[in-house]
Structure formats: C-alpha cells, structure tokens
Design a protein around this nucleic acid. Structure first.
Length: 301
DNA sequence: CATATGTCCTGAGAGC
DNA sequence: TGCTCTCAGGACATAT
C-alpha cells in the first residue's frame, strides 16, 4: 500500500522521464478488469499525445506528471524544478493514484499480467512510464488545471505530511472528537499518511491511537509532529516498506527496506522494542488494523 | 457540520 | 484436491 515514502520513492525512480514527449498511451490486453481511466482512454490519449512531461511531483500519495502547454509546442519548454508545494502546476497534468497495489515504474514490472497502462515516450531519459497494479483499484487521470484544483485543491487535500508545520497540524486537529489515528489517515487533514505509517508514527510519539484529538496535549503535538518527520524521512531513506505480501517494489527484483525497522506494524504479539515489557496489540479502528504498545502508548499522558 | 460505514478489486490463506 | 469464504486497505460515495 503505497503511502508517502513509497510514492516519493516512485517519483525519484521515474525522474528520468522528465523531458520525454508522450507518443502514445497503451492499455495492454488483459483478462482483468480495467483500472479507472479518466477520461476514458480514447479521449485521454487524444489529449495527452504530443505533450512533454515537464516535471514529476508527488502529491500526497499520488504521482503527478506535469505537461507542457499544447499550443506552445515542445521547443520553448524549460524543465520545471521539483517543487515542495505540490499545487504549483499551472497547466494540464496526468495524475496516477496507486491506491492499494499500484506501482509507477520505468521498467521491470513484477509481472506483465498486471501491467495496466504504458505511457510511451520519446526524447528525455526514459522510453516509457509503466503503471502496474495488482488489484486494479488504481486510477489514472488527465486533468486541466481547473479540474486539478477541483480534484486536488486545498479543500480536498491537506498540506503535505513532510512539510506541514506543527502549528498547522495542531490547528487542523485540535477540538475534534475523532481518534488521532483516524484523523491522521484523513487526506483532507494532511496528505501522505496511510495505515502503516500512522501506527509507526503514533508509537514513536507514544500516543494512544484511540486518543481523541481534543485530548492531545500541548507537548504531544510537538512529539507527534517530530515523529511524523522522523518516521517518514527514515522510510524514504530506505525506499519505503515492502510488506509480507511483497507487492510494493521499486522494480521486479528490488524491495524497499523500511519494513525491517517497523516497530509495531504487523508485529502483534511481539515484545515492544521500546519498553521490552509490553506486547504489541492489534485493534481495529474504522475497519483498519491499528498496532500499538499498551505500555508505551497510554491514553492518559 | 462531523463522523461513520459501504464499495470497488485481486490473490492469499483458512477451513472443510 | 478443490471449492468457498474471509481478509487486506486508499479513496470516494453515501448515510447517520
């Protein structure tokens, strides 16, 4: 399940595709249901053909391919630098949402049967961008700038989890009755955190996942904010987490590393690596597994 | 308005 | 062996 660190890794791995011009978009024949392509492929292809990828950005858990202006042709295009604020694009773009099992790669998909979409390129440093997705819950969208704002504007997507300030984080959550873990998963609150990293972050911050946001105290906001940065940065350094199901990979034979450093996720029954006395527990919140240490993460403090 | 639940999808694993 | 069932969860739609 690609979250911020995995999607950041994908973006870095496909950066060579910047400068490439989209020749065509091909959907391999498959016995499986098609992923969601919006607008439908015929129109998508018509709009994307001939456009140059000017930048590749991460937007929360999504990959964005910025495109040059159609009317302008290809010669005057400079390469737009990667930008921290994901909402700076001015033109059309393609957004790829990996959701549960999607991967965006330049080559070596885990297998061919789940290859969903091929963006054929010319020029630039890559021949194509591949969208591979085992379960097929992923989405590919072609969006005008106005559509992009409608889909992914500040009302739909909160500030990025890597760059949000502690003040903003606090502002957006304090007073809410929701459990802190559920709130961290809400992409309107902040973008990028999913089920795995929510558990890891709360464990590092030593906050009980069921603690209502309004009960989080002053010092805990700083701890939470710091833990978010630490966990996400470390996970990026290790190129994300490849879980037991082995779905996420950087290429066919290359896994992420960060699963080795998980302290709670999928470790129910194991001793806590902080205190050594507690056993990691699994609970269910909003239909999702949460893992935590009842000793280190008490509701009170 | 805030929060909760159902739905999509595939493959793995359990149980009979 | 081979069938059916359940489960995993990101994002969105719908319900309370």
């Amino acid at each position: 399940m690609p979250e911020l660190p995995e999607v950041e890794t994908m973006c870095r791995c496909i950066a060579a595709a910047v400068g490439g011009r989209i020749r065509d978009i091909v959907q391999p024949k498959s016995r499986l249901q098609s992923i969601t392509i919006s607008p439908p492929l015929v129109k998508f292809r018509r709009q994307a053909r001939g456009r140059t990828v000017t930048a590749i950005r991460r937007l929360g858990k999504r990959v964005v391919l910025d495109l040059d202006d159609k009317r302008q042709g290809r010669s005057r295009q400079g390469v737009r630098p990667m930008n921290d604020d994901a909402r700076e694009a001015a033109g059309d773009c393609i957004v790829l949402e990996p959701r549960m099992t999607g991967l965006v790669l330049l080559a070596d998909p885990p297998d061919d049967e789940h290859l969903r979409l091929i963006f054929q390129l010319q020029g630039g440093g890559a021949r194509h961008i591949l969208f591979w997705d085992q379960r097929g819950l992923g989405v590919a969208r072609f969006l005008s700038h106005a559509q992009f704002l409608r889909h992914y504007g500040p009302r739909r997507l909160g500030p990025d989890a890597l760059t949000i300030t502690v003040e903003t984080l606090r502002q957006r959550l304090e007073g809410s009755r929701r459990p802190i873990k559920t709130a961290l998963l809400d992409q309107q609150v902040l973008a990028g955190i999913g089920n795995l990293y929510a558990s890891e972050i709360l464990h590092l911050a030593r906050i009980h996942p069921a603690l209502p946001c309004r009960r989080v105290r002053g010092a805990q906001w700083s701890k939470l904010h710091a833990a978010m940065g630490q966990v996400l940065q470390a996970a990026i350094r290790h190129q994300g987490s490849t879980l037991r199901d082995g779905t996420y990979r950087i290429a066919r034979n290359q896994s992420g590393d960060y699963q080795v450093y998980h302290r709670v996720y999928q470790r129910a029954g194991d001793p806590c690596l902080n205190c050594g006395t507690g056993k990691i527990v699994r609970i269910v919140q909003a239909q999702r597994s949460t893992f935590f240490c009842p000793t280190c993460q008490q509701r009170g403090r």
